[in-house]
């Protein structure tokens, strides 16, 4: 069984599912609230923002790149969107369009710089993180924004219902968007030519060039996609917290990166699946949630999450190595 699991293409997903199942059982027994519908919807809502960006991060990693600047992109997109809808009015669709456009534009800056400067993406995006974020702070002096139009305060829900004890539950727009982003990213990666070319590019860039793939176009697509999702996520986050604080998003980039890597994406490119990323994000979300429910101080959350990532990633790496078997000679007896 273990041997078969080791060579199974989805071994990482299977392994994560086991951990999640075990953790669920434990948290279900340890706390009363964990398995409640209210808690599930709460967790989904509060992780919709990071979840949407993790889909973008997955696509970037698969192509062999990395993006650290997306939190700055989200912040700039959010701020721009807020200023426009506050001063000129509009509606929610317009809010998403503005933030998405800003995201795509800043993403394309990353794409062009990485392609033409031929400097590792991690360096470029650390630099652009500072440039984007620094410019925003310099121009806005770090002012918070509270005064949203009233329509912005009403978070649309797809459907809602009231339980016997009178509590109202709602599946709100952020949750719907999260699911939509996951489904369309999965489709992009699995079923479209662009998606498969991204896997190819991440697996062997030199070979992709020889195949005649347009590397610039693929790179632009990847970083613009990341930018777009950062923009979308930023509106979702503004909806949830109802304020815009320029320093509330930047600093969370490693949390997203860790969840995606935990979900089986390789930092060296070419591997990773959307179901894996969903599991990775879920695991991180569940741990935070479980620790909160058990009343553990939030300072300890990071320690636990970090430890689980180290263990999980090294178990996967170890089982892959064992599965491949470096030196084996068939000995004549």
């Amino acid at each position: 069984m273990w041997r078969r699991l080791r060579t199974h293409p989805q071994r990482n997903e299977i392994f994560l599912s086991f951990i999640i199942a075990a953790l669920s059982v434990y948290l279900g027994l340890a706390t009363r609230e964990f398995f409640s519908l209210e808690n599930l919807l709460d967790v989904l809502l509060s992780y919709s923002f990071l979840g949407i960006m993790s889909a973008g991060m997955l696509v970037v990693l698969i192509s062999g790149g990395i993006d650290i600047s997306f939190t700055a992109i989200a912040t700039v997109a959010q701020y721009t969107m807020s200023l426009i809808i506050i001063n000129y009015g509009g509606n929610l669709l317009l809010a998403f369009l503005i933030a998405g456009a800003v995201g795509i534009f800043l993403g394309s800056v990353n794409g062009f710089l990485i392609h033409y400067l031929k400097v590792p993406a991690i360096i470029i995006t650390i630099a652009t993180l500072n440039v984007f974020y620094g410019l925003l702070i310099a121009v806005t002096k770090g002012r918070w924004i509270y005064a949203f139009p009233t329509w912005f305060y009403r978070v649309p829900s797809l459907f809602s219902f009231t339980t016997a004890d009178g509590t109202e539950y709602a599946v709100t727009l952020p949750i719907v968007l999260l699911v939509a982003v996951f489904v369309s990213t999965a489709f992009l990666l699995r079923r479209t030519a662009v998606g498969r070319m991204l896997y190819a590019l991440g697996g062997n860039q030199e070979a992709a060039v020889r195949m005649g793939y347009n590397i610039l176009r693929l790179r632009l697509f990847v970083y613009c996609f990341m930018g777009l999702l950062a923009g979308v996520a930023s509106v979702v986050q503004a909806e949830i917290v109802q304020t815009v604080a320029p320093n509330s998003i930047v600093g969370r980039e490693l949390e997203v990166l860790a969840a995606v890597v935990l979900g089986g994406a390789s930092i060296t490119g070419g591997t990773g699946t959307l179901p894996g990323t969903v599991l990775g994000v879920s695991l991180v979300a569940m741990m935070h949630n479980g620790l909160t429910l058990m009343g553990v101080s939030s300072y300890w959350h990071q320690v636990f999450v970090g430890a689980v990532i180290v263990i999980s990633v090294s178990v996967t790496a170890w089982s892959q190595r064992a599965g491949r078997g470096r030196h084996r000679v068939e000995i004549e007896v």
Partner: peptide
């Protein structure tokens, strides 16, 4: 160096890498 894609399957390496000429979907 063979210029193959190590992260993809045999089938995709042989039959899948020319799909950039063959439309949007795989």
């Amino acid at each position: 160096d063979l210029s193959l894609f190590p992260n993809l399957t045999v089938a995709e390496n042989i039959g899948g890498t020319r799909h950039l000429r063959e439309g949007l979907l795989v």
